[in-house]
Simulated scan of single mutants.
Amino acid sequence: PTPPANITVSCGAEVPPMISLTASDTCAGQITATGVDTTAPGNCPNSYVITRRWTFADPCGNSSSISQTITVRDITAPVVPQAPANVTVSCSGDIPPMISLTANDA
């Protein structure tokens, strides 16, 4: 069989679900295999490569494999909130206190 195409996604939630594939063997007929994922870490928690491999083996121990590479690469910057309005004050004691802001990240 032909494996699914190699893909790149932005975050782990976009990794496609595992599927089973079926191969044909001259003597054994159809052989169905479920893929096995191997993950290699990248340089941040949302950056890694999954190698999804399907191995088909017949009753005589003959086997062949195919694989798909799924690259997870977070290249989307966080969406920042609107900053507080600029202010002009007369004295340093009138400077508003620091506040925390929250950004959203995919």
Rank of each mutant, 00 (worst) to 15 (best):
P1T: 08
P1Q: 11
P3V: 01
P4W: 03
A5T: 04
T8A: 07
T8V: 04
S10T: 15
C11T: 14
G12H: 05
G12R: 06
A13M: 13
E14N: 15
V15H: 11
V15R: 10
V15D: 08
V15W: 09
P17D: 14
M18D: 11
M18F: 00
I19W: 05
S20K: 04
T22E: 05
S24V: 06
T26C: 09
A28Q: 03
Q30V: 03
I31H: 02
T32F: 02
T32Q: 05
T32D: 04
A33P: 09
G35N: 04
V36M: 10
V36C: 01
D37Y: 02
T39V: 15
T39D: 12
P41R: 10
N43Y: 11
S47P: 02
I50F: 02
T51V: 13
T51K: 13
R52S: 03
W54L: 02
W54S: 07
F56A: 05
A57M: 07
D58V: 01
D58N: 11
P59L: 02
G61F: 06
N62Y: 05
N62I: 02
S63E: 02
S64C: 09
Q68M: 04
Q68R: 02
T69Q: 15
T69L: 14
I70Q: 07
I70V: 10
V72Y: 07
R73W: 00
P78N: 09
V80N: 14
Q82L: 12
A83M: 12
P84S: 09
N86W: 00
T88L: 09
V89P: 12
C91K: 10
S92T: 12
I95H: 05
I95A: 12
P96G: 08
P96L: 03
I99Q: 12
L101P: 06
N104E: 14
N104I: 08
A106F: 09
A106H: 00
A106S: 13
